[in-house]
Amino acid sequence: MGKTKVFIGICLITALLATGCGKDELEPLDAPYELNLPVGFPPMPVPVGNELTVKRVELGKMLFFDKGMSRDSTVSCGSCHLQTNAFSDVIAISSGIEGRKGMRNSPPLFNLGYHPYYFFDGGVPTLELQVLAPVQDVNEMDHDFPLAVERLAQNPRYQEMARIAYNREFDAFVLTRALGAFERTLVSGNSAYDQYNNGQSSALNESAKRGLALFQSERLSCSGCHGGFNFTDYSFKNNGLAEVYADSGRIRVTAVEADRDKFKVPSLRNVALTAPYMHDGSIASLAQVVEHYNSGGANNPQKDERIKPLNLTAQEKSDLLEFLNALSDYEFTTNAAFAE
């Protein structure tokens, strides 16, 4: 009788186990990544299939700093996107492999998950698709994309993490998703301005407060384009940088004449850390940027109507600069979680 009970028990256990068939795939050994958004920031959109997890972000960070992304293994994403500069570069035009120069200033990387499109001309709609561009750009990494994926896939650590994070071999999907995941975690929103905005009135000095008032005034109209929590409306504008532009801007991706010489409005968060300025890095300092807007800019037919002489006093310029400096988030630029 005892043997019979054991036999029946084994049979029932087998049957119960069998009812679980169809779920024999291993769940990824991963955990959700807690994205701690600053007060006042809206939820960040995250694409289905690339929800943030610890391993995805970790893998993306490793890839971000991997020079193996470039053809001759000399340049990584981090080569032109330096954390101390809010993940921008300190020179007008960054160097790709073999010192090659492209045509545009390296943009800072933060709060990217909120952007509706990427690059100065807005030609790329997602962070994941964005990955394809620098890898293959002849002036950046100049790599054949299949070869880049093949080489990175030789890394056993990447293979292991790809299986955990995405439940698949390392491939183009993993490469683009992981980098997108890491870049979404680059959130910046703890500047002196933010602290002031969240109730710490002493976080801004009197000059910065006057600068904030000027910034938000109808007279200057700065916040007309640089408004919202991220200090940009993501629109495309011509700010009268020159009478003739060497780079035709958004028309390159739309072929619409109205888009000629227009560029995506950048966020002003961390702006004091991201010199030089403009799409071509042609303005060296923030003080010169203020002078540019104060002058009303060059006579370009596409210039936004709000770009006109401001007649700022020396004190007003100083106040504006003080406010712009207060947009720097040093917690972000020193966060070890983002460091190589």
Binding site: F119, D121, G123, V124, P125, T126, E128, L129, V131, L132, A133, V135, Q136, D137, F145, P146, D171, A172, F173, L175, T176, R177, R252, V253
Partner: peptide, 21 residues
Amino acid sequence: ATYAQDHPLSAFQGTFWTWNS
């Protein structure tokens, strides 16, 4: 990047515009 390598729409086909998706 969502397609298998041999799919006509794969990134491996060299037909995708990276700067203007």
